[in-house]
């Protein structure tokens, strides 16, 4: 894809930086009280209702198998065509442009839907492909 730099919302989860395309990031809110879901995977921390909609909260660190014990302060709401979801964040850095298309971080699993390393002013981050990740998550396990 020979495109110009795309704006991404960059946030930290543990010691790693992640980025989602700014146009997919609908909102940043404080982490609310969550409702636990029966039979859910460990990275699915729970759900909360936001503006009449139930949103699942995904712990990206657990998702890639590197859990952290920091307190998540905020969640980043991401909306794609199929649905919406929320990513945990210890700190939201802000909107930053990412040049080009970094390669996938893995061939399978969740990493197959992350690209990096991508340069942002705050450092190197993994750029998330929200549509693919949601698809991956909705497949269940």
């Amino acid at each position: 894809m020979a495109e110009g730099p795309r704006g991404h919302l960059v946030f930290a989860c543990g010691g790693s930086l992640y980025a989602v395309p700014a146009e997919r990031a609908s909102e940043v809110v404080n982490l609310p009280v969550l409702t636990r879901v029966p039979g859910a995977a460990p990275h699915l921390l729970g759900v909360f209702a936001h503006r009449g909609e139930v949103l699942p909260v995904i712990d990206l660190a657990r998702l890639i198998g590197k859990p952290v014990d920091e307190i998540f302060k905020r969640v980043v709401l991401v909306r794609v065509g199929k649905g919406a979801m929320a990513f945990t964040a210890t700190k939201v850095i802000g909107v930053a442009p990412i040049e080009g298309a970094p390669p996938r971080l893995g061939e399978s699993g969740a990493l197959a839907f992350m690209h990096g390393p991508a340069r942002v002013p705050a450092g190197e981050c993994a750029a998330i492909e929200p549509e693919g990740l949601l698809e991956y998550l909705s497949r269940g396990r």
Binding site: T35, R36, P38, G39, V47, A49, P56, K82, L137, S138
Partner: peptide
Amino acid sequence: LPVPAALVNTAHGALTGFVELSGTLWP
């Protein structure tokens, strides 16, 4: 309330939705 896309297959599809009672969400 409908089940989010990420959770449609959770618990062998036993999760059918959410109800909200007094501001509390119940699966």
